[in-house]
Design a protein around this nucleic acid. Structure first.
Lengths: 244, 244
DNA sequence: GTGGTTCAATGGTCCAACCAATTTCTACAC
DNA sequence: GTGTAGAAATTGGTTGGACCATTGAACCAC
């Protein structure tokens, strides 16, 4: 017998019901990321549940990054929602040492290369134009400030992930990116970090524009290699412990 | 100016503080997964916060899968915790359709190839022997039951991830794996699923044993390609909707 | 304009009670 | 003694109401 044919009954699931109703509301109102949800008090009143229950539900969504709460202001949608979303919370036993940073780079190397290749395969003309726009902005910032800018650099990469057509790339790499920068900026603070990676942004773009997946993949690998080199040199200079 | 030099100050962070204290408690008491945490009322009293605040904190942990709450029984630890955990909530819009499964496979393709290559680089003789042992078990199961066995197959792959020296591979791929199988077994239930991937397990092993990263990478890609083919055929056969 | 002040709205926290599921204890039948 | 049904205690789930802290807009003095 298929045990799925007899699922356990749900006698109470108040906050789940709240979230379900909220999904319906967001879709009915066609709320976009950035827009504000109804206040907790209004939700509680409309759904006939206590405000605490509403808060527990919103806490769950906040934990999933679907929503952002700002005291005194309101609760804002952060991402698109759909009835059959699938949540996959992943907790990594972190560590702020050299080894951990290298490990995030190994993951990023694999994903970055694949995303660049898929992007080259699937990019439309409009996509290519958008990526070029982000590239120009990044290069402009580089020349103005004579150095890599995390912000514009990240925007460029995100554009590639989006064009790859697979949102998981952006989500996973964003987590790696956050972990990486949390420990890079402050403890190391190497001034010319990322400088060597600069030229590869344009070459990646060119292979994408040429619809050459293998070329784009190769350039992405070169880019990550320069970051790995920077990290190794920075670690050596600062005698970063190699183990926590 | 480096905008990171003026981070926003944190005036209140009650539930974060609760979770931090809880991490400390778990480590101090050396709690193992499966053991019970103090009751919400006791936590509220000891930490001098209201039970609501404790509940918000626990709700967050529950959403991350770190903890399980059972009404009338208690709150139980589900996974190891550490002070510097990184949380990566992945949200896949679209749930159980063909597109989502293909997206998990794209991620897995990138990571599987990289892990196999790193494994071939770094494997010691003992590691190789361990992988071969897992391979033998898997092949034995295959012959006995005349078909792929998820269990033994997964063990083989996990051995490779571990030898790669980067625990992130196992954690991320495990999340993909779980998602994939949750929807594979039941709605599709193709009997000979994975059959085509069988021979590549041994070839991957052989390249690893030969310390040939590029060869191992290539074989891993072939293996994933067979799974993608299976998925496409299964989806076509069952007319699985390609979009929600 | 510029910089304060006030004030309403909103999320954050607290309390005290009660509900619902679970576990434990207890009394009773045998 | 043993087993079982029922009562009691424990624990997470929910409620309603209150107050605090932050935000943002409107307003005011200069």
């Amino acid at each position: 017998m298929d045990q799925n044919s007899l699922p356990p009954i749900q006698t109470t699931a108040r906050d789940d019901a709240v979230l379900k109703a909220l999904v319906g509301f967001v879709r009915a109102e066609a709320l976009q990321p950035g827009e504000r949800l109804p206040t907790e008090r209004i939700l509680a009143e409309r759904l006939k549940v206590s405000r605490n229950t509403v808060r527990e539900a919103l806490t769950r969504w906040e934990g999933l990054g679907l929503v952002e709460r700002r005291q005194g202001s309101g609760t804002y949608l952060k991402a698109a929602v759909s009835p059959d979303m699938l949540h996959m919370p992943l907790t990594l036993a972190g560590g702020n040492d050299f080894t951990s940073l290298m490990q995030t780079l190994e993951i990023r190397r694999a994903l970055e290369a694949e995303a660049a290749a898929l992007c080259a395969e699937r990019a439309s003309q409009a996509d290519i134009a958008e990526i070029e726009r982000k590239l120009d902005i990044m290069e402009q910032a580089f020349r103005t400030r004579d150095g890599m800018s995390s912000e514009e650099d990240w925007e460029f990469h995100q554009a590639i992930y989006r064009v790859s057509g697979n949102p998981l790339f952006e989500q996973i790499i964003a987590a790696m990116h956050e972990l990486f920068h949390r420990f890079w900026e402050h403890p190391l603070g190497v001034r010319d970090f990322g400088h060597a990676s600069f030229p590869y942004h344009r070459t990646i773009y060119e292979f994408i524009a040429a619809r050459d997946p293998q070329g784009a993949r190769a350039e992405a690998l070169k880019l990550i290699a320069t970051v790995e080199d920077d990290l190794k040199r920075g670690a050596a200079k600062l005698k970063l412990p190699s183990q926590t």
